[in-house]
């Protein structure tokens, strides 16, 4: 199945990726190939088969006791941040 240019642009937007105009045909072609390829799944007879989200059967979620185990390390953690002030991470203005 060939993806349209618009579909590719829409996916890129959902994924917050900016594709240059010149790149789009390439992605369109690659993604169409990939979509065709995974489309082979259609022929699998999966009637009555439950989806499998985890590779190990029967495991269930473990619970953690409700205890505070972390300390304030924001200065260390913010060393990787591109822009901070007064302990806040900064981004261009968010309009609600």
């Amino acid at each position: 199945m060939a993806l349209t240019r618009e579909q590719v642009e829409n996916i890129a937007h959902l994924a917050r990726l900016e594709l240059e105009a010149a790149e789009i045909p390439q992605f369109q072609q690659n993604l169409s190939r990939i979509v065709d390829f995974i489309g082979e799944l259609e022929r699998a007879d999966t009637a009555g088969v439950a989806p499998m989200a985890h590779p190990l059967p029967g495991l269930t979620q473990r619970l953690r006791p409700d205890a505070v185990t972390e300390r304030d390390e924001h200065e260390l953690y913010q060393r990787n941040a591109p822009q901070v002030a007064s302990g806040l991470y900064l981004v261009p203005k968010v309009i609600e």
Binding site: A12, L17, L31, T46, P51, M52
Partner: peptide, 28 residues
């Protein structure tokens, strides 16, 4: 980017059942 876009596509509205769920069934 290709993989992020492929993943975004297979999870998006209208394709989730045909791709993601189908794949998880085949995985089983």
């Amino acid at each position: 980017k290709r993989r992020i876009m492929t993943g975004t596509y297979v999870l998006s509205a209208g394709y989730y059942d045909a791709y993601y769920l189908k794949a998880q069934r085949a995985r089983r």
